[in-house]
Design a protein around this nucleic acid. Structure first.
Lengths: 151, 151
DNA sequence: TTTCCAATTGCAAATAGTTTGCAAATAGCC
DNA sequence: GGCTATTTGCAAACTATTTGCAATTGGAAA
């Protein structure tokens, strides 16, 4: 359990709170959920459902349960869902209070994923929202290219 | 045929070239392909495969053919594929020479789609690419919010 | 620490989106 | 009009995800 504390900064303190957070919504901290949190906690980039499933110790948990768990955790703000075009959804563990808004640079050859600090300029987004009369505007932004090793 | 000349600016002159463009690759300008181009030419925003299929006159063309046609047209640079998270792919007709790089503002309630002029700052993208040693970097960027009518 | 029940799980089947093999149909060059 | 490579329809396969239901289980209450 303690090992999760040492992962990526954003993930810090996620695991110790999980039981408490689940309890608050009268949800149970079950074996499968724990295992999934552990796997997500080991990586600092979004994992595909397939990757999570195969990393499951002795894959004793059903694939449907992985989907259900991830969905629940997403609703609770514990994980964030990403789509990189090809393939299915990917999930990243979040620390409490983090809304998970950030972006990635993905290698189109080997799918290596780098987390990016930069974001679309806030003022420009406000301008776009205002000009079109839209409210509550956010964005999804991902970069794609060829990583050093694949060049 | 002529009606397509009057669509959205980006689409201008797309249709008259289609036969020629297809011929150049020894492809045929068939009924289904013509019908799909016509449908795409009527709209200035990306259509889902479902939408295209149902707009097909007397839907006499198979869904598989729609997929195959769109795939071919994508490879030939005649249409551009987009993904807005939920649901399947969407396709937009391009004018010759247009690489189709642009973005959208999508209503999360009614899926209304507005085309956006703004783009992620080039210099910032170069910085991101350089810092991580990536080459040939591009990006996908879409905005989501609530449109005036849905507020 | 046992009981109890709502929450959770496994399993299998359903659904959505997309692709593919193959024989029949057809566009466009001659 | 004929010929042939390209295209199409159809059905089946595939991938990603969801759902119904009966059996199981976490954890609050007794």
């Amino acid at each position: 359990m303690k090992s999760l504390r040492h992962s990526h900064p954003r993930l810090a303190r996620r695991f110790p709170d999980s039981a408490e957070q689940l309890r608050r919504k009268s949800r149970k901290l079950t074996g499968p959920r724990l295992a999934i949190l552990k796997i997500l906690g080991r990586e600092s980039h979004p994992l595909s459902v397939r990757e999570i499933f195969h990393a499951l110790p002795s894959k004793d948990c059903d694939l449907a349960t992985v989907y259900r768990s991830l969905h629940l955790m997403e609703q609770m703000g514990m994980v964030k869902r990403f789509h990189f075009g090809k393939g299915g959804a990917r999930f990243e563990l979040l620390a409490e209070g983090d809304d998970g808004h950030h972006h990635h640079l993905v290698c189109t050859q080997c799918s290596q994923i780098v987390e990016i600090e930069e974001c679309f300029p806030r003022s420009l987004q406000s301008k776009i929202a205002a000009r079109n009369g839209f409210k509550a505007v956010t964005h999804k932004l991902e970069f794609f290219g060829v990583c050093p090793r694949c060049q």
